[in-house]
Amino acid sequence: MKRSPEAKRLEEILRCSRIVAGGFMGEDPRPHEEIIEADGAALARLGVTARQLAVRMREMTEYGMAGLGTPVRFEERWEVVVDENRGETVCPWPHEGRYQKTVTTVRRIDTGETARWSALSVHFVEAHGFFQGRGSPFRLEPEDLARFLMAA
């Protein structure tokens, strides 16, 4: 695959610890473009878009913020806790934007399943279709996430 200098630089930033400890790629050897493509294809098979997931994730986070770090019941099926930490992060893609260091943990009350994401994760999913590399602490498996969030 032929890559532009910008794409190479982006790949380097995603793999290093410049923004978060351990970077965003985990042990995934695939280039970020390939990860995005594969995750996008997985979502397409389910008939869901990354943007739809991001909208749902943001909705849960914003609702959970009212709990000031305590669990909040969301639509009777989920329990949301939003931890806000000091500072902001930036997106490695070259555009304006800063993201508070919040971590949202959502638990399905009926099954006990959980999912966790940061404010930057939501932006990654929405703007770049990027669910992070396998082994990254904030990697979201798109199919699992879709089933988790879109449960009726």
Binding site: V20, A21, N85, V103, P137
Partner: peptide, 8 residues
């Protein structure tokens, strides 16, 4: 200091 997940 509070531990931040993945905080450098």
């Amino acid at each position: 200091v509070r531990l931040v997940p993945n905080g450098i």
